[in-house]
Design a protein around this nucleic acid. Structure first.
Length: 166
DNA sequence: GCCAACGTTGGC
DNA sequence: GCCAACGTTGGC
């Protein structure tokens, strides 16, 4: 069996939003095995990124939203490809979706792991200051998607920011 | 807590 | 397929 060509694509870069009150970067660090399935996503575009585009090894900017302040809290990686999000099948879960069935689970999620600390937190306000980041999807007006592709240039630039002290 | 900007739902 | 109503996101 030939490996699908898509598996030969270089790993890519993503930004994943989470509310730190619900699940924070330090929560990921403290998880057993330091990984967590990214369940609870109930937006098709975000789901499709996870199902169709995200590959093991892809790098992640771990973003805290609805926070004081909001911003990039750390790095992580995709450690397991998308599999069914079982919270959708659990009536007791706050993420329960009555339209999901075991035959057609409807929602899928990758597993995120390998948390890596940055030297410092990079706030949303700071990201907005830099010309090279002007095109970032995150900074677009009205952008609410919880999973966003990030270019290699943007990713590298943010890494530099997090290394240099402001 | 406010509210703009989206996404989803469901009647027609 | 249209679109009004509603729910959600997320910065501020």
């Amino acid at each position: 069996m030939q490996k699908p060509l898509i598996d030969y694509l270089p790993s890519r870069f993503w930004l994943m939003k989470t509310e730190p009150d619900v699940f924070s970067f330090s929560d990921l660090e403290q998880r057993l095995g330091q990984c967590e399935q990214w369940d609870g996503v109930r937006n098709y575009q975000a789901r499709n990124f996870m199902m169709q585009e995200m590959k093991v090894g892809d790098k992640i900017l771990f973003y805290h939203s609805n926070a004081q302040p909001s911003g990039i809290a750390g790095l992580a990686e995709v450690v397991e490809a998308a599999k069914p999000d079982l919270t959708a099948l659990n009536p007791k879960s706050e993420y329960y979706d009555p339209k999901a069935t075991p035959e057609n689970p409807r929602w899928y999620a990758v597993t995120v792991g390998k948390p890596k600390k940055l030297h410092r937190f990079v706030s949303l306000a700071e990201l907005r200051e830099y010309e090279p980041l002007k095109e970032m999807l995150l900074l677009r007006k009205g952008q609410r998607l919880s999973i966003l592709p990030v270019s290699q240039t943007e990713f590298n630039h943010i890494l530099q920011l997090a290394i240099l002290h402001k």
